[in-house]
Design a binder for these strands. Sequence first.
DNA 1: TTGTAAGCGTTATCAC
DNA 2: GTGATAACGCTTACAA
Lengths: 341, 341
Amino acid sequence: MRSKTTSLRDVARLAGVSVPTASQALNGRARVSDETRRRVMEAARRLRYTPHAAARRLILGRSDSVAIVPGTNMTGIFSDLFYRAVLTGVGGVFEEAGYRMLITPPLRSASQLPQFVEMASAREIDGVLVAGVVDTRWVEDTIAAGTPVVLLDNHLSGRPVPAVVNDNAGGAYSATRYLAELGHTRIGFVGAAVDYPFGRETHDGYRRALAEAGLGPDPGLERLIPIDAERAREAAGVLLSLADPPTAIFAVTDLLALGVITAARERGLAIPADLSVVGMDDIDLASVTNPPLTTVRIAKEEMGRRAARMLLDLIRGTDVNPTIVVLPNELVVRGTTGGRR
Amino acid sequence: MRSKTTSLRDVARLAGVSVPTASQALNGRARVSDETRRRVMEAARRLRYTPHAAARRLILGRSDSVAIVPGTNMTGIFSDLFYRAVLTGVGGVFEEAGYRMLITPPLRSASQLPQFVEMASAREIDGVLVAGVVDTRWVEDTIAAGTPVVLLDNHLSGRPVPAVVNDNAGGAYSATRYLAELGHTRIGFVGAAVDYPFGRETHDGYRRALAEAGLGPDPGLERLIPIDAERAREAAGVLLSLADPPTAIFAVTDLLALGVITAARERGLAIPADLSVVGMDDIDLASVTNPPLTTVRIAKEEMGRRAARMLLDLIRGTDVNPTIVVLPNELVVRGTTGGRR
DNA sequence: TTGTAAGCGTTATCAC
DNA sequence: GTGATAACGCTTACAA
C-alpha cells in the first residue's frame, strides 16, 4: 500500500507557479523572484517534497554515487578486519562529498560478470573503488565504459590504473630487520601466496631484510598459506616442530600472528621469552592481546581516504593522470618481541 | 571523457525494429516473433547494451534496492565485529533475490535527518533494514512514506515494527546459570547501559539466573560500560580489586570478555583456574584466544538472513502482518571456564 | 506481430 | 522573472 508520491507538479500547483519555475526556485538559481522562491519553498516544505532521484539522474546524467567493490580475496566486505578500517576512511570522504556508496556483493569466480560492471554501464554509478584483488579485464571494461576506477590495496601491472597501496615490502622489511637486530638468526615467515601482489611483496621484504642482515634464506622456515588464523596455527606448528625451530616469526597479518601465538602456547612456549612474533596491520585487538602484539601499523584509514579522494578527482575531471600512491607504515613495538635467549 | 551511452534506440536501429519492440523482445514478453527477438538480442549483445537504470526506475516505480542502515550504537558498519557477521547473512539473501544494497553512513545524532529517510521519499529504495539502535521517529517517518522497514538486533516498544532479535536475556541467563552450576557464588557482570534493549535484557537474564541459583544480586559486582575492550579492562580491574572479588565474570560481549581476560592476566590471575570468564557473540577470534573463550553463540548470519527475508516479503506484499522474531542461542563451552577453586 | 503515441518526474532552452 | 516546450531512456496501452 504505497502512498502516492508527491511530485514537483504538486508543489508547483500549490505555489501557483509552473513546474520549471518551481524547479528553478528549489535549486537556488538566481532567476526567480524572492517572493516566488519563498512561496515554492513553503509549498515544498508543507508537502514534504523530495525530488525523485531516478528522474534527476535521468536528466542530469550523474548519480552522485560510487560503487565499493570487495575484491576476490575476501569473503565479504563485512567479514574482513583489515578492510573495515580502510572503508571507514573511504566512507568519511564520500559522505562529506555528498556521494552515496553502493556496496556490491563480493567478487567470486573470475568467470562471472560482476555487478559493478553492469552498474557502470547502466550509469548507476559515477565511479568504482575496488578494495583488494580484482580481475584486470573487469577493470578495463569499466574504464572503457567511461567510468573511472581506483584500486585500493592492489595495483595492476599492465595498465596505469590509479591505486593506493600500503608499502607491503617496506613493512615486511622493517619487521624482519627488527627481529634480526634483536639477535635472532632463525626467523620464520608465515605469508600469503606469492601470486598476489601482497604475498609477493611481503615475501620480498622479508628476504631482503634477511639478506642485509647476512642471513641466508631458508625455504624450510617459510610457510605460504591463506589469510586465516587457523591455517597460521597449523603452519606455525610445523615450523616450531622443526629440529632447529625459529626463535622469531614474522606473520604478514595480525590475524596470522595470533594463530602463531596460539601454536606457540600450545607447545608451552612463552612469548616473547621463547618466541618473538611480529604481525602486520595493527588491528584494534592487537593492543588487547596477551601480551600486546608487536606489529607493523598500516595507515588503513588514510589509505581509504586517499583512494576516495582520487576517485572523486577522477569523477570531477580535476585529476586526469593516474598515479599509484604508496603509503608508508610504522613498526609498533609492543610485547611479543624480545632479544634472543 | 565519458563515452556516449548506447541506448535502446541504438539497439532497435541496428535490429531494424522500433524501440518498443526492442523493449518487448529484451524483456521476454511473448508478443514478438522469434526471428525479431533473435535479431534484437544479437544487436544488444553486439552493442553491449545495458538498460539505463534510472530510466527503468522512473517508469517501473521500483528500484530493486534496499538500504542497510547502521544504527546509532556503532561508529561504522565496517568497524563492528558483530554486525559484520549479521550482514553476511543479509547480503546473501538480497544478492540472491537480485536486490542491491545501499549502505548508508552510520546514524549519528538523533537530531540530524538520516540519509535513508531521504532516500525512502526519493523512491530510491524499496525497503530499509536497520541494524541496531534507531530513533523511533525516523522509522515511523519512513513507514509513513510507504517504505517498509525491518529492524535487526533491536525492536521498538510502541509500534509493531517487524524485527529480528537475539534472545539476549536467554543468553545471559544460560551463561550465568552455567557459571553458578560450576559452583561460583560471586559472579561478576560486565554489561552495557540498561537504557538500550540489549543492555536491559542481558542484565535481566543475569539477575534471573542469579536469583534461581539462590544468589542475591550484588550491585557491587556489576559494571555497566560502553561496548569497548579497553573499558572492559578497566571495569574488570575494579571488580578484581574488590576485597572479596568475583571468581567468575559474565561479559555481555566477546570483546568485553577479552578485556576482562586482559585485566585478569595483568593481575597475575590464571584463567580459568583463578577466574572463569564467559562472553556472548562467538566472534571468529573466540576460538583462537588463549585459552579459547567460552561464550554464548549468537546465530548472527541467521539473524541477518531472517531479517532480509522479512523485508523482501514486506516489499513484495507477500507478508503483511509484522512480527518480532526472537532467535535462540547456544552456550559454547571452551577453555575460559572451570569449577570454583 | 509490430509501430505509434503517451507518459514517468525532472531540468535546460528559449521565447515571452 | 516566468512559462511553454523539449528532452533524458524506457515501458505500457492501443491502434494498425
